[in-house]
Structure formats: C-alpha cells, structure tokens
C-alpha cells in the first residue's frame, strides 16, 4: 500500500510549485495514479510511505486540449480514453486512437494519463511509439527563484531509459505538442499474452499518407518493447518514403529492423515479431490511407 501524510490537489501551476517546494525531496507527483498505486504493493516496492502526494491532474495547463488542422497540444494529464472518445483528437491522431483500444482497458484509460505514461518511461509504454511517430515535443515547467520557466524538447530526447527521463526533480511535465496527421492511415500492432490489460512484448505504431499516384508520401514507424526506450524506425521510413507500396519493398524495409532488438529476454521472438509487424502494420495503415494495398490480401489470408 502507498501511505502518505498529505494528499494535495493544487488547482494551479503556482500552487503546485509551492507544494513541491514545501515538500522538497519528500513528495511524489501523481496524475492518474495507475502506475503509482500498483507499484506500492507486495512483490514490487511493497508498502511505501511518502510524506506527500501531489496530484497534478487538476491543474488547468495539464488539462489543455488544442487541436487544429496542423498542430495538437494536449495537457500531460489528458486521460488515454480521450484519444478514443474525442472525435477531433482521434482524427488528428489516428494512431493514438488505435493505440488506445489496446491500452489497458476502458476503465484504466479513463484515469491513466498520457503524461504519466511518458514519465513512467516503461520500455513497453504504449503511448510513446505513436507520439514518436507524431514527432511529439514535450513541455516541462519548473519554478526557480520564484519564476515559472518552461522548456521543450523532443520526446525522443525526453525518454532516456527504463524509468528514466530528462525530467528534473523540481519539474512537471506540462504538455505534449505534435503534428496533427489527419487523413493518415494508421495501425497499432501489439502482442502480449492476452488481448486486454496486457503489457506489450512488442508494439508498433505506423502512420502513412499516400500521394495522388498512390506512392508513399509520408510515413512514420515507431516501436516499443524491443529495447530500453521506444524508438523510430528511420532507416525503414527513409527507404519507403516516396516509393511504391509493394510487398517486396515492405519486406525489405522490415528487414532493416533486424539488428534493432536490444532486449535480452525473448530476443529472437521480438526480432521476428518486429519484422512481421512492420510489414503487416504498414499494410493495414496503407489500406486505411486509401491505398490499393496489394499486400494486405495476401497477408491477411486465412484459410478458413
């Protein structure tokens, strides 16, 4: 169990920083608490006593939502379920919607925040690959010498390793900003040991846009679960961009991921699945992007 002497719910950024200063070194931030509470149980951290829990989910800046044709800005405390039930957001971030149906379950998603997922920095965090695919930037804030200052960085630089991020002890993750990708075809592939409430062994985010000639105008691929941090598959992307979407080319792009798997456990399995996910994930994304998607028929053939 997680025990605390105080549970604070600041209603403004300034109040949050005041509380953080007061409890310096003796607090922990929570948003949805869906990582924090299960962590403080037997078999993991066990009983944990923390002087203060500071709940950041009621701070207006962390609940922001701005969506237009080109950009998206969402507060860090945005629950994962928003990517499914907020139509504008789902259209601007089609791969986040696909990711969200695989994320935990409807109830956890109602509480679990996108910021918590990023800060928790699990190698298998589901939201990270889609956000990498969106070239997301994170915005961090802190109060130093009485002044609130903000800084930004690419998500890829923010997540540093399992449980490690660039967040400083006195910082809060404020918001995430990224490109809107309306009209992109998207797919999120994920495999674990079941189909709900499942931690990914491998997950892959794929988004694609086709040009008038049905060549690949833009695509982004990102993977989670195969190394200490989720990452983009730039080599495969560069190879495919501008070309035709044939099965042979997809296979070749997938082949470029062979050396990428760093996880020691289930290494060969992850390598094989990643390879397959690149092909199949892209094929579905292509189909959703309106492509003729020649490969899909063959791939999804089931002899039933």
């Amino acid at each position: 169990m997680l025990y605390c002497d105080a549970y604070l719910t600041p209603r403004s950024l300034a109040d949050a920083f005041t509380a953080m200063a007061e409890y310096r070194g003796r607090y922990r931030l929570v948003a949805g608490a869906t990582d924090t509470l299960p962590w403080a149980r037997a078999g993991r951290a066990g009983d944990v006593a923390i002087p203060a829990l500071i709940d950041v989910s009621a701070i207006p800046e962390l609940r922001e939502r701005r969506v237009d044709a080109t950009r998206v800005r969402i507060g860090a405390a945005t629950p994962m379920q928003r990517f499914l039930d907020d139509g504008d957001l789902a259209r601007a971030m089609p791969v986040m919607a696909r990711c969200a149906v695989w994320f935990a379950d409807d109830q956890i998603r109602a509480a679990a925040t996108v910021g918590g997922n990023l800060v928790n920095a699990s190698p298998a965090a589901d939201a990270t690959p889609p956000l990498l695919a969106h070239d997301a930037q994170v915005e961090l804030a802190c109060a130093r010498e009485g002044k609130i200052t903000r800084r930004r960085m690419a998500l890829g630089d923010f997540v540093r390793g399992p449980g490690k991020t660039a967040l400083e002890a006195d910082e809060i993750l404020l918001a995430i900003e990224c490109a809107a990708l309306p009209g992109y075809g998207a797919e999120f592939e994920k495999v674990g040991h079941r189909r709900s409430l499942v931690i990914a062994t491998v997950c892959l985010a794929a988004v694609v846009r086709l040009d008038a000639a049905h060549a690949i105008a833009d695509l982004r691929l990102a993977v989670g679960g195969v190394g200490p941090v989720p990452c983009r598959l730039h080599e495969s992307e560069n190879f495919l961009r501008g070309g035709a979407a044939t099965l042979a080319r997809l296979e070749e792009a997938a082949h470029m991921t062979v050396g990428l798997v760093q996880s020691r456990t289930r290494h060969d399995y992850r390598r094989d699945v990643l390879h397959g996910f690149v092909v199949r994930g892209l094929a579905s994304a292509l189909r959703r992007a309106g492509g003729a998607s020649p490969p899909v028929g063959e791939l999804e053939a089931s002899h039933a």
């Binding site: 299960p38 037997a42 078999g43 040991h193 079941r194 189909r195 709900s196």
Partner: peptide
C-alpha cells in the same frame, strides 16, 4: 514467485 499479482499472473479476459 516472479508472478506475485494479477499483473504478472494473467488470466483470460472476455476478449480471449
């Protein structure tokens, strides 16, 4: 045990 809770000891859900 390395499967001390229902996050690690996984059971079939309605989807499975």
């Amino acid at each position: 045990t390395t499967t001390p809770g229902l996050a690690k000891y996984i059971l079939p859900t309605a989807l499975d």
